[in-house]
């Protein structure tokens, strides 16, 4: 077994293990840090799939952006209530049954399907330049739409959280 294979199985186990901790751990801050490890491991799996630009984007946007936002939300909202998450037993059992059934169905689908995979995996010297060309060519319209979506989300987030300004103050 060569190094690549060993590393792949390491990240395979790490991804699943840390995701289990994200879901089961009681402390919310600990869950956020386990989520960070999961996101790093998914970025590593992107590297195995030869998606280097996407791996870098995953680290920058998810770990650097979304996770900081999540931690910020945890700190802002956990003042009075305790960070411990108690679970109700009945809800826990029914949700467990639903997710395990979902897992089993999807597992069977993946197992039974005869995947028509190519003999060799996708390989490239680096995807950054081809992704840049695709954004400016084939994917120009989605790129513009997504930029407008981001702008709207930004304005909307500010609008929702800001304090109400009274009429007489504004005048």
């Amino acid at each position: 077994m060569d190094w690549t294979q060993t590393l792949f199985w390491f990240f395979f186990a790490m991804t699943i293990g840390s995701a289990v901790f994200v879901v089961t751990v009681r402390n919310l801050v600990h869950a956020a840090f386990w989520l960070m490890i999961t996101l790093f491991c998914v970025a590593a799996l992107y590297v195995f799939l030869k998606a280097d630009f996407l791996a870098a984007t995953q680290v920058v946007v998810y770990v650097g952006g979304i996770l900081v936002l999540v931690l910020f939300g945890v700190m802002m909202t956990s003042g009075k209530l305790d960070l411990n998450l108690k679970l109700e037993r009945g809800q826990m059992i029914s949700s467990g049954i639903i997710s395990i059934a979902l897992l089993a169905i999807l597992f069977l689908i993946v197992r039974r399907t005869n995947w028509q995979t190519a003999e060799t995996q996708f390989d490239s010297e680096g995807t950054t330049s081809s992704i840049g060309e695709a954004i400016m060519g084939e994917f120009l319209l989605p790129f513009e739409v997504v930029s407008i979506v981001l702008l709207i989300a930004l304005i909307g987030a500010v609008l929702i959280t800001r304090k109400e300004v009274k009429k007489e103050d504004a005048a």
């Binding site: 699943i16 994200v22 879901v23 467990g96 997710s99 897992l103 999807l106």
Partner: peptide
């Protein structure tokens, strides 16, 4: 699929 099921859970 494991990540998906854990997320749903």
């Amino acid at each position: 699929i494991i990540l998906f099921s854990l997320g749903v859970f």
